[in-house]
C-alpha cells in the first residue's frame, strides 16, 4: 500500500512539473493550462484499475507535453512547417511559426530529467513491492537507496551533460548513443 501511495505522489508531482512546463510553452496557446490539471485524476484511476498509478501512457503524455517547448528549437519541426507552407497552407504555417518562434529559448533540461527520474523510481518501486514481499524483505533500505540514487542523478546529471558545453566531440557522443542502442536491442531480444 505504501508503494501505491508513493507512486501516486510521484505521478502527481510529475504532472505538476509537466503542466508547469506546458504553461510556459506554445501548448498553452492551444489548451488552457487549467484543463491540463485534470490529468491529476489519472493516477488514482489507474490505481482503481489495479495498474501502476504512474504508468507508461501517463509518462508518454507528460513527456510530449513537456517537450512541446523543445519543438520551438527543433529543425525537424521547422522543416515540417516549410513543407506545409510549400503545399499551400501558408496561413497555418505562418501562424504556427509565429507561435513557436516566440518560445525559442533553451528548454529546461532539469524539469525533463525530473519527470524521467520520477517515472523510473515509480516503475522500480512498483516492481520491488511484489518481489520484496515474495522474498519477505522490507522496503526500507531499497527505497532509501533508490531515492538517494535518483536524487544524485538529478543533481549531477546536468554536470555530466555540461561536458558537451566543454567541447566533447559530437562524434564521440554519437558513438556512445549508437552503442547504447545496440546494447539495448541485444538485451531486449534476449
Amino acid at each position: 500500500m505504501r508503494i501505491r501511495i508513493l507512486n501516486i505522489v510521484l505521478a502527481e508531482l510529475a504532472i505538476f512539473i509537466a503542466v508547469g512546463i506546458a504553461e510556459a510553452s506554445p501548448l498553452s496557446m492551444f489548451i488552457p493550462a487549467r484543463y491540463l490539471y485534470f490529468l491529476a485524476i489519472l493516477p488514482p484511476v489507474f490505481l482503481l484499475l489495479k495498474r501502476n498509478p504512474f504508468d507508461f501512457p501517463l509518462f508518454a503524455i507528460l513527456i510530449v507535453m513537456a517537450s512541446v517547448k523543445v519543438l520551438a528549437n527543433s529543425e525537424m519541426f521547422y522543416s515540417i512547417l516549410d513543407t506545409i507552407y510549400f503545399f499551400g497552407f501558408r496561413g497555418l504555417a505562418e501562424h504556427l511559426n509565429s507561435i513557436f518562434s516566440a518560445y525559442r529559448s533553451s528548454p529546461n533540461i532539469s524539469a525533463l530529467s525530473a519527470i524521467v527520474i520520477l517515472y523510473v523510481i515509480a516503475q522500480i518501486s512498483w516492481a520491488m513491492e511484489e518481489r520484496l514481499k515474495k522474498l519477505g524483505l522490507g522496503f526500507g533500505y531499497p527505497l532509501v537507496i533508490l531515492g538517494i540514487v535518483g536524487f544524485a542523478i538529478y543533481l549531477f546529471y546536468p554536470l555530466i551533460l555540461s561536458f558537451h558545453a566543454y567541447g566533447v566531440p559530437l562524434l564521440f557522443m554519437g558513438l556512445i548513443g549508437v552503442t547504447s542502442i545496440l546494447i539495448a536491442i541485444y538485451l531486449l531480444a534476449s
Binding site: S67, V70, L71, M76, F77, P107, V116, V120, L161
Partner: peptide
C-alpha cells in the same frame, strides 16, 4: 524532434 535535451534525458534510465 532533433532535440539534444531529449536524447540526453534518454540516458537517465540507463544510469539506474
Amino acid at each position: 524532434a532533433t532535440s539534444f535535451e531529449l536524447v540526453a534525458v534518454s540516458i537517465i534510465p540507463l544510469l539506474f
